[in-house]
């Protein structure tokens, strides 16, 4: 139910959960959490809980989808029925299909696909608990899973969103902020170059607000990137 009164979500620079405008929610990353998948990663981001399983390179099914000269990179984003307050009917829906596509495109840009003609690299992302910004978490987890699987890539991708609440541009919207905010900008970014591999937006931004939002994301992506690297290293240096 949308409350038509304006909700105060940021007061004296403090948001509902105590964060400042440029703070990301707490993130926990664990790489190599599944046995069947060649690579895997589990990411907790705020209340989001997302797991990604990567397979490949492997033979393409159905055959007609294969490319003779390169690998195809396919991400399948799926929300568990119990991941949201109002149970989600199992199975693909339009939103999941769209998210799957934009993540697949972003990941494809990173993978050295020419090295594995006629194969597929598949990542299956399951959202186990959703709390705003799941597609950014999904992109992050997918990138980690691909790295864990030993897939050759130009680099890791960081997913992070920014938005607008009570007229202020803020980083990493939480659930309430996403529901009642004025704009949402999920982005997938190459942390080393600052180049953008995934971007969607809905709501209302002036040009200046957009620049500010993108700036916040770019800045935050560096720290998230460090966390990703640390998690990958940890996976390969502990018994």
């Amino acid at each position: 139910m949308i409350d038509m009164e304006e909700r105060i979500m940021i007061e004296n620079g403090t948001r509902l959960d105590g964060r400042r405008f440029d703070e990301v929610r707490p993130i926990k990353i664990e790489v190599g959490v599944l046995r069947n998948a060649v690579g895997s990663a589990y990411v907790e981001w705020g209340k989001n809980k997302v797991i990604a399983a990567a397979f490949g390179p492997r033979e393409v099914h159905p055959r007609h989808q294969q490319s003779p000269i390169k690998a195809i990179v396919r991400c399948n984003y799926n929300m568990a029925a119990f991941s949201v307050p109002d149970r989600k009917r199992p199975g693909p829906d339009r939103r999941s299909s769209e998210i799957s596509k934009v993540i697949s495109d972003a990941l494809t840009g990173q993978v050295f696909v020419e090295r594995f003609p006629r194969t597929a690299v598949d990542v299956f992302v399951e959202v186990l608990e959703a709390s705003a910004g799941t597609r950014c978490v999904a992109l992050t987890a997918s990138s980690l899973a691909l790295a864990d699987a030993g897939i050759p890539m130009r680099g890791l991708l960081v997913g992070c969103a920014a938005g607008k609440i009570n007229g202020e541009v803020v980083l990493d919207l939480g659930k309430e902020e996403d529901n009642y905010g004025e704009a949402d900008l999920p982005v997938g970014i190459e942390p080393m170059t600052g180049e953008i591999s995934l971007m969607q937006m809905d709501g209302h931004f002036t040009r200046e607000e957009f620049d500010k939002a993108l700036g916040l994301i770019t800045e935050a992506s560096k720290g998230i990137h460090e966390m990703m690297i640390e998690a990958l290293k940890r996976r390969y240096s502990e018994v």
Binding site: N36, I51, F55, N76, F124, V125
Partner: peptide
Amino acid sequence: VAELRPGASE
């Protein structure tokens, strides 16, 4: 209902 997700097994 059961979901046997492809990520769980090839």
